[in-house]
Amino acid sequence: MVLVKTRNLLKCYPMGLRTLTALRKINLEFQRGEFCGLIGPSGSGKTTLLNIIGSLDVPSQGSVTVLDKKIEELSHVEAARLRRNHIGFIFQTYNLLPLYTAYENVEFPLLLIDMPEAKRKKKVMDALDWLGIADKAESRPAQLSGGESQRVAVARAIVKLPDLVLADEPTANLDAENSFNILEMMVKLNQELNTTFIFATHDEKVIRYLRRKIHLVDGQVVKDEIVN
């Protein structure tokens, strides 16, 4: 089943008097359950593409369909609803809410979808448990290591069981061991829950795990390979 589809996607940004083309003629399809990555150097357009798929940005031309919804036609509220119900984000710098505990950070996406408290509590503890950080539930981000913080971020992304997880350089700030642990968990998630993962990365540690590698250079897809 096609989860994400881009057609002739073009994204331009005004840069003073000039226009910078970040993405050009991107035609891609992502199936449910894929574990794939957008690979390329800085400035190749991978984060821009991830943002558009995540409905945080809109295409300048062309069309992007996510779960049968055209991103370019969504209002702010509809885009927020799509993210709230169907998409999880994982960031390079974790971006946990610093004033809240690990438990509360993971709880936040469930509060946004008005999940009842008892069910919410179970889901949060399950997610923390699954990622092996249940004992850190009451710790604030400042009290967590990088690996623990990223696990909390992953728990926050997957706690609502989204259809799609978008991960932008998720291991860039992690050492090899933590990167390995995080990636192993993501693979497990992908396999057990059939959650679709799309990475933006140039980290070899991540690239090794990908089953589909989409290479971007100067905003264009130069190679799209399936790894068996």
């Binding site: 984000f89 971006n95 946004l112």
Partner: peptide
């Protein structure tokens, strides 16, 4: 973060 997580 709140926007990314779907808060309008």
């Amino acid at each position: 973060v709140r926007l990314a997580l779907g808060e309008p």
